[in-house]
């Protein structure tokens, strides 16, 4: 049991880190909380469901379509709302929350309020001694870590990636280096949508696909940012693991209904005790 929890906690944490990173990026670059972020996750899930299960497209193609839906919706959020409300974080936060609720209603209208049962992206169960893990969650974790590593390389080794970090550290410094912060915002919102949607495909297959599924990942993302300290990738990774393990312990040992509750409690505790998080430094 203990080893099962350990392994599941570890696997889940990779996915949580992926969920959180797309959310953190937006905060680092634009200093706003994107409360519509959970929608990218939901959209990823539904698009994949439509493509793979309803239309019978190959897994890989369905995955790409899900990713593109995230990019498109991320860009749309930026162009239609965020860009127009620049310099007013509260307005951005209120309007992205409203957008999330509107999207929830839209999903209910189109797909009905009841949950859809999703097939795993990868079938099968792997057993080692008394421990069993699904191939699906292994794939989710593997993809999460690969995407995180690629993202790390991107922001550290490419001109565009460095420009994103530059804007997040000193906007004016970036401006006078010839970087257009609006373009960087666009790239970041598109990327954030992609990351959310990729995470969403796995999140939906591991939990379930329903019109309310945007709430929990959003809370997780907020928690990772708050616990890990704003904008720190390493802090985010560690925070994702703390939360992943806490979730696994409470949902397996106490009750599955407690998913999210411990995370929210953790948010409050960290806010009160150490407002800058464990690793608070303003970088990406």
């Amino acid at each position: 049991m203990a080893i099962q929890i350990l392994i599941h906690g570890f696997l889940l944490s990779g996915l949580y880190a992926l969920i959180a990173i797309g959310f953190t990026m937006i905060f680092s670059v634009g200093r706003v909380l994107n409360l519509a972020y959970g929608v990218y996750i939901m959209l990823g899930g539904y698009t994949y469901f439509m493509a793979a299960q309803e239309a019978g497209l190959p897994v890989f193609v369905s995955f790409i379509l899900a990713l593109l839906s995230g990019v498109a919706f991320g860009l749309l959020t930026y162009e239609l709302l965020v860009r127009r409300l620049e310099n007013n974080p509260v307005a951005v936060e209120i309007s992205t929350l409203i957008l999330a609720v509107v999207m929830q209603a839209a999903i209910i209208l189109i797909f009905s309020p009841s949950p859809k049962s999703m097939w795993p992206v990868l079938r099968g169960v792997l057993r080692f001694e008394e421990v069993s893990v699904t191939a699906n969650i292994l794939l989710a974790t593997g993809v999460s870590w690969v995407v995180l590593a690629l993202l790390m390389l991107f922001v550290r080794r490419t001109h565009l990636g460095r420009a994103i970090r530059a804007v997040s550290m000193d906007r004016r410094g970036a401006l006078i280096s010839g970087i257009d912060p609006r373009n960087i915002s666009r790239v970041t919102w598109g990327l954030s949508g992609a990351l959310g949607a990729i995470a969403g495909v796995f999140f939906a297959t591991i939990t379930q696909l329903d019109p309310h599924m945007w709430v929990f990942p959003l809370i997780t993302a907020v928690a990772v940012v708050i616990v890990g300290g704003i904008g720190s990738i390493l802090g985010g990774l560690i925070a994702a693991h703390i939360i992943g393990f806490l979730e696994t312990i409470t949902t397996t040992l106490i009750a599955p209904e407690l998913r999210g509750v411990v995370t929210m409690a953790l948010i409050i505790v960290v806010l009160v005790v150490m407002p800058k998080g464990l690793f608070g430094k303003e970088e990406l």
Binding site: R162, A166, M169, E283
Partner: peptide, 13 residues
């Protein structure tokens, strides 16, 4: 300057 970038990275930006 970009406080959490190294000297070389600042120059590359």
């Amino acid at each position: 300057l970009f406080p959490f970038m190294g000297v070389r990275e600042n120059l590359l930006v």
